[in-house]
């Protein structure tokens, strides 16, 4: 029974994930695309939970959904209505063909890999304890084995914050000096 429920949840989440991803790349209005991405993130969080990654799921919702997507929506709202008339690439037609082929190739490769070499390997997940994926476990790893990654990540965030400020202030300076280059 519980297994069945898990399967159902998995299918719903997976379907929602794919549908929202397709929606993101299909909508003409970027606002709708951003909303679709929020749906994608939420369904991914569900999938993380199914994989016993509780902390990561929470982080996904908080960071991605609560911060990144909010930023996106702010910017889209600021830029105003940018509904595109012809969203698809107006570029050379071979781009389309090439892109489709490349995408299909990647898909095919991965599926082949999965099917052929990892078939037996992938179907034996390890046994896990209750504390798997808990904040305590994650935190311990961050502060012991992966301390460097932790510190570097914080620096990356700092750099991004500075960059954001610089980009924003630069734009404000030019605007105030009456520069309106189009």
């Amino acid at each position: 029974m519980a297994n069945f429920l898990v399967w159902v949840v998995w299918f719903v989440a997976a379907f929602a994930c794919l549908a929202s991803a397709l929606a993101v790349v299909s909508f003409r209005n970027p606002f709708y695309s951003a909303l679709a991405l929020i749906g994608n993130l939420a369904s991914l969080a569900v999938l993380f939970l199914l994989l016993s990654g509780e902390f990561v799921a929470a982080g996904q919702v908080l960071v991605y959904g609560g911060a990144v997507m909010v930023m996106f929506l702010f910017v889209i709202a600021y830029l105003g209505d940018r509904t595109e008339d012809s969203p698809r690439s107006g570029g050379p037609s071979w781009q389309v063909v090439g892109a489709v082929l490349a995408g299909g190739a990647i898909l095919a490769e991965v599926i082949v890999v999965v099917g052929l070499t990892a078939g037996g390997f992938l179907s034996k997940p390890q046994q896990i304890t209750r504390g798997f994926g808990s904040p305590e476990a994650i935190g311990r790893l961050f502060l012991t084995d992966h301390l460097l990654a932790f510190e570097v990540t914080s620096i990356v965030l700092l750099v991004a914050a500075v960059g954001g400020v610089v980009l924003g202030s630069h734009a404000r300076q030019l605007e105030s000096s009456g520069d309106a280059r189009a």
Binding site: Q95, A102, A105
Partner: peptide, 19 residues
């Protein structure tokens, strides 16, 4: 100068490398 064509080149390169 088109970002998309550079991205296509990247993608194709990754595909070849994977193979």
């Amino acid at each position: 100068g088109l970002v998309r064509s550079y991205a296509l080149a990247l993608t194709s390169g990754i595909a070849v490398l994977a193979v």
